[in-house]
Design a protein around this nucleic acid. Structure first.
Lengths: 218, 218
DNA sequence: TAGATTGTTAATCGATTAACAATC
DNA sequence: TAGATTGTTAATCGATTAACAATC
């Protein structure tokens, strides 16, 4: 009662980072205000969609003026929880895993790796960006003693469900999953899948049907 | 006339790799047949959706029986053009780029890197998985002399549009884009964006709204 | 044959777009 | 003030789900 929150559709949520990116660009270029008409043209969407999307979360504009770029940028940032720090652990320190650890722009945005785990004895003990890789057997112990917001899974499909279930037993809030497992049915943890092979297959479809499929790629 | 092809929605296309993955798993486990009811339960979708999706492309099932796993797997593979080889080049040999080159399962599926380019003189000349990194200045020459199906862009946003436009002038069919630029308006080339930062932000949103957002993550 | 399950049409639901009164 | 542009309601469009005749 009173506490009712309108359900926001996933379609809307998926567009938020994109608004944030375009606004960041405008901000960087010193542009102070923008109308839904202008921004939506740049983004190749309709002004209606942009205004509808934003009005799910509040009234950020002003009639006759448009939107203040800096204000809207920060408001969307807050909606996306970018105003808080997130602690990350990596599980599976292969090529992709190491690349993610080394990707500095995550840290700039407040996503900070605090530990990494692997099963391979050749990898355990290595140091990547100042973090010493631990044995996967130490994972549960670590989860008990530390606050972990997000576990990044970059390991073979076979191991993913087992590890995901271990993680779900502790207080981890989200799994950023790069394995090809879908992690359907993992409870108490939010899952975001990055299926690179799926993405490549979608491109493969598109290039094979190029003449009949000229639509925008979102 | 007669040549009319029904427009397939992007929503459907995006689900195809997932069907393919689940069927591959069944095939691997020696399961010969499956009904839309069974498979859709595993995948957490409705049987109607699965049948509707497939019937965009043909009639692959049999009343009273269901679908032959191996047959359907291969048919979806063909729809996704997985029955042909694709030549790839990498542009931007940083952490992510190298990880992609080293990711063997792409090659297993017929996606083969044939060259890689970078602007950094420290990286040019290095060898990754048997491929010697070339200077970015040699890119256009290379495109003229070789058939490239897909260019994988893993470079800073600032350079992306310029490189994408260069690519678009030649006969490259698709761009698999890991830069944070959207590549809106690049002509004659299909674009598939992998925005890792966007994906992480979506997870950040989800974990901040966990109690009100328990839906499935597709 | 009887039971199962498809392919497909029709109904529903949700998301996008259009329109416009409110107002800066 | 007049012009611009929002927030929001209504209309449209498309995607998902339900239902069922066809048929293996």
């Amino acid at each position: 009662m009173g506490d009712y929150k309108k359900k926001i559709s996933l379609a809307v949520i998926k567009r938020l980072p994109r608004y944030h990116r375009y606004l960041g660009e405008l901000l960087y270029n010193g542009i102070a205000r923008i109308s839904s008409k202008e921004l939506s043209e740049k983004m190749n969407i309709t002004p209606s969609q942009m205004r509808q999307d934003l009005n799910n979360f509040g009234c950020f504009g002003q009639q006759g003026y448009g939107y203040n770029v800096e204000y809207l940028y920060h408001e969307i940032g807050k909606i996306l929880n970018l105003d808080v720090q997130h602690s990350l652990i990596l599980i599976g320190v292969g090529n992709i895993g190491q690349a993610l650890m080394n990707y500095i722009s995550f840290e700039k945005r407040g996503f900070k790796f605090i530990a990494a785990f692997d099963a391979n004895p050749k990898i355990v003990g290595m140091t990547v960006r100042g973090i010493k890789i631990s044995d996967i057997d130490c994972l549960e112990q670590f989860l008990k003693q530390n606050d972990v917001d997000i576990a990044v899974l970059a390991l073979p499909e076979e191991k993913s469900y087992e590890i995901a279930n271990t993680i779900a037993k502790h207080n981890v809030k989200g799994i950023w999953n790069f394995s090809s497992a879908d992690l359907v049915g993992i409870k108490n943890v939010m899952v975001e899948n990055v299926h690179l092979t799926d993405s490549l297959m979608i491109l493969s479809y598109k290039i094979g049907n190029q003449s009949t499929n000229k639509e925008f790629h979102y």
